[in-house]
Design a binder for these strands. Structure first.
Length: 553
RNA sequence: GCGCCCGUAGCUCAGUUGGAUAGAGCGGCGGACUUCUAAUCCGCAGGUCGAAGGUUCGAAUCCUUCCGGGCGUGCCA
């Protein structure tokens, strides 16, 4: 509905511009068509006259009047258009016209909300990407849910999406991990071998060591580092994958640093940067001259030891990604964000489109328990793992809370609230709405109501204010999905589902005024149609966020 | 010092990318279950949108400065 109207408005603006010998395409940028906030402002409003006033050198209200007559009745869907305020044009749909959305929702069912705008575009979402040095912690959890929901949104808007997990398995970090496991192993066998100074202190490595003792006794005391590394990496990765599985997250591709070395991509990347004249040597190290891109400082690509820093393979990796997909979206925490501009600048220097490398930044999660903030530190091994929280609050609440807020704001995760099965907990409010809708449908079926074809349902009977409100909300859904996908802001979906649930609860609580199943069969049929549309939309939104839509609670 | 992110109701946050009278949830107070699920709903109270300037028809939103918080600023990943 909005789409149809918008194209009418655009056409009208074009005619208006042509009459004044102006280039329409240059004027359309700021023109919007938004759902009105209050009924007196009609169903939709456009700011077109206000935006055009300056470039066309005309009074906004005059342009607005002209626009109104240009629009006419929009092929019968417009009852009237009014100029209001400084020059807004408020559009009032003909009675019943906007109820058409109900037929559409029922017809499309599970597909309602999906769109094809991204068709043919390959997008990679690279997320989690935690190195296999320990279990996933709460920060990774936010990253995981954010990335997964983003990927889902892009799929829902027609993009061809790859979920990818990249990890470093070639650097110093993994050697420290191997040494840490060796030390734990030796300790279990009664040897006095301390952990490396910057070793991994977590209990999980002791468990890996214990399994080694059980399997091989002291047979690994002389094993070399690579054996310990492989063992640690495999064990830890198995744990990470199990956690992701609990979260309902599946990756299409796991890629790693080592392969980039083995295939010569890292060397080639360095050679090409050198050919581009962006590299110099100093103090025995190889530097990227990133100040030439306006960045703060130059950075080391190859240490004086001859080993590459993490930056170089990262550049090679992004280059490789863009051979496979048109766009890549990196989901990164604040600890990684500093390096991002360097990767992007280097990619541009290598002839790649920097716009094709996008960043979704998220801020840290503060855990709150008993009203107190829980202190966390990876170095001290005093982190809280995703598994612990999942044991506590379950997957649905975890996913909802992680996606509820904008990514770039700090997130307060109140564990007590997430665990609560009460009216304070928004995720249950949404699920409860879905369960209630299902309950009404069950009751209707028991009483012999048959689900009529969408075309024959008398939706014109739905005239109560609360019904109008619900239908308007339903109408927004596809547009909302498109916007959330485009803006990379999945929290908009969570917010919407909460709004829709609240509106439904308010509707159904006023059962005296609009009981769904009643004496009037026609009215009941219309309301059941509304119920079906609400249920489908809630279910679609929840599915997009990876949250269950229970039929009973 | 420099860079990035953030400052909106007592608390946690929205605000469709510059639109009309700034909204939710929680917490507080007061109400509603012979009802298709009260895991819900209805009402009340609560704001100089961190501060000051600027841009324009119009600013919580954009620009500048300042204040406050987070993160980063390694030949660590």
């Amino acid at each position: 509905m909005r789409d149809q109207l918008l194209s009418r408005v655009v056409e009208a603006v074009e005619r208006l511009a042509q009459r004044r010998d102006a280039d329409p395409s240059a004027l359309l940028g700021g023109v919007s068509l938004t759902p009105s906030k209050s009924p007196e402002h009609g169903d939709f409003a456009t700011n077109a006259a206000l935006v055009l006033a300056k470039p066309l050198r005309a009074a906004p209200r005059e342009l607005a009047d002209e626009l109104v007559s240009e629009l006419g009745d929009c092929g019968g869907s417009l009852a009237r258009a009014e100029v209001a305020g400084p020059g807004f044009v408020n559009l009032f749909l003909t009675a019943g016209r906007w109820r058409d959305v109900l037929s559409r929702v029922l017809r499309e069912g599970e597909a309602y909300g999906r769109s094809e705008g991204g068709k043919g575009r390959e997008v990679m979402v690279e997320f989690v990407s935690a190195n296999p040095t320990g279990p996933l912690t709460i920060g990774h959890g936010r990253n995981a849910v954010l990335g997964d929901c983003l990927a889902g949104l892009l799929q829902a808007t027609g993009h061809s999406v790859t979920r990818e997990y990249y990890f470093n398995d070639a650097g110093r970090q993994m050697r420290v991990l191997a040494a840490s496991l060796r030390a734990r192993y030796a300790q279990l066998l009664g040897r006095d071998e301390p952990l490396p100074e910057d070793g991994y202190r977590g209990e999980y490595l002791v468990e890996v060591a214990r399994a080694l003792v059980d399997e091989h006794g002291d047979g690994w005391l002389e094993a070399d580092e690579s054996a310990f590394q492989r063992r640690a990496q495999e064990a830890i990765f198995a744990g990470i994958e199990a956690t992701l599985d609990r979260l309902g997250i599946r990756f299409d591709v796991y890629s790693n640093e080592r392969v980039l070395y083995d295939t010569g991509r890292v060397d080639r990347c360095l050679a090409d940067l050198r050919d581009a004249g962006l590299v110099y040597e100093k103090d025995g190290a190889v530097w990227l001259e990133s100040t030439r891109f306006g960045l703060n400082r130059d950075r080391v690509l190859v240490k004086s030891s001859g080993e590459a820093t993490y930056l170089l393979p990262d550049i090679a990796y992004h280059r490789e990604k863009l051979e496979r997909v048109r766009t890549t979206i990196d989901v990164l925490g604040p600890d990684h964000v500093e390096q991002f501009p360097y990767v992007r600048a280097a990619a541009e220097a290598l002839g790649l489109d920097p716009q094709a490398i996008e960043l979704v930044l998220y801020q840290w999660v503060n855990l709150r328990r008993g009203g107190e903030k829980v202190k966390m530190s990876t170095r001290e091994a005093s982190f809280v793992t995703v598994d612990e929280i999942l044991d506590d609050v379950g997957v649905d609440a975890f996913r909802y809370f992680m996606i509820e807020r904008r990514a770039d704001t700090h997130l307060d995760f109140d564990v007590d609230l997430a665990r609560e099965r009460s009216d304070r907990n928004p995720v249950y409010k949404i699920q409860y709405a879905h369960a209630r809708l299902c309950s009404i449908e069950r009751r209707a079926a028991e009483q012999g109501f048959e689900v009529a074809g969408a075309a024959s349902i008398p939706f014109e009977l739905l005239t109560a204010p609360r019904e109008e409100e619900l239908i308007r909300l339903l109408e927004r859904f596809p547009d909302l999905i498109r916007h959330a996908a485009k803006a990379r802001e999945p929290q908009e979906v969570a917010r919407y589902l909460l709004d829709l649930s609240s509106a439904f609860h308010a509707y159904v609580s006023d059962g005296k005024r609009h009981r769904v199943i009643g004496e009037d069969r026609e009215l009941s049929a219309a309301r059941l149609g509304l119920v079906g549309a609400l249920r489908a939309t809630l279910a679609n939104g929840l599915r997009l966020l990876g949250i269950q839509a229970p039929e009973r609670m």
